[in-house]
């Protein structure tokens, strides 16, 4: 433990932090027809050309079988689409006003995850989900807390000189012709 505490005193070098636009988290609740409802949800969003930039699922008999994030501007369309499906209506839960914070690189090592959990947990920042990707760790928290989360993490993480956390300014949208 002392070794761990010593390593917290040294800042971890990271290459970047990326923040999302405002998102809404959708939780898929495991009630009655879990397999059907999950598949139907993804099918409806695909048919209606709605992107889901972040998805977590687990089929291990949990009350919440999946969590995903969608763009805040898509939420009215999503509610309309699922509203017409009685099988789905009662199985979704919406958490508005969330955002993602992406730190990279993780080097497949648990240190960055451990430090992030430690810092965010110590400051009681809500964590609605997280996942690793090829080189990054993405955390879902309140959109209004993203800047605060960055400040907390940067007390123990170093960005390269002249780097700052960024929000992508280019948005790619796919549409079928």
């Amino acid at each position: 433990m002392n070794h761990t505490r010593e390593s917290i005193d040294k800042k971890i070098r990271i290459n970047g932090i990326k923040l999302s636009t405002e998102l809404v988290q959708v939780n898929l609740l495991n009630r009655f027809f879990p397999q059907d409802s999950g598949a139907l949800f993804f099918q409806l969003l695909a048919q209606n050309q709605i992107n889901i930039p972040f998805i977590l699922t687990s089929g291990m008999g949990e009350k919440i079988i999946g969590s995903c994030c969608v763009a805040a501007e898509d939420i009215h369309r999503i509610k309309k689409v699922v509203g017409g499906e009685p099988k789905l209506k009662e199985k979704l839960e919406f958490i508005p006003g969330v955002g993602t914070l992406c730190i990279f690189p993780h080097h497949s090592n648990l240190k960055l995850l451990g430090l992030s959990f430690y810092l965010l947990g110590k400051q009681h920042l809500p964590l609605y989900g997280m996942a690793s990707s090829i080189s990054s760790l993405t955390f879902i928290t309140d959109y209004s807390q993203l800047d605060n989360a960055v400040s907390i993490l940067l007390e123990y993480m170093n960005l390269p000189p002249n780097h700052a956390p960024f929000r992508p300014e280019i948005h790619v949208i796919q549409k079928k012709r």
Partner: peptide, 14 residues
């Protein structure tokens, strides 16, 4: 307990 788990995960990174 997230903070405590963070410390344990850091130990595993060593």
């Amino acid at each position: 307990k997230m903070g405590q788990w963070g410390l344990w995960l850091m130990e595993l990174a060593d």
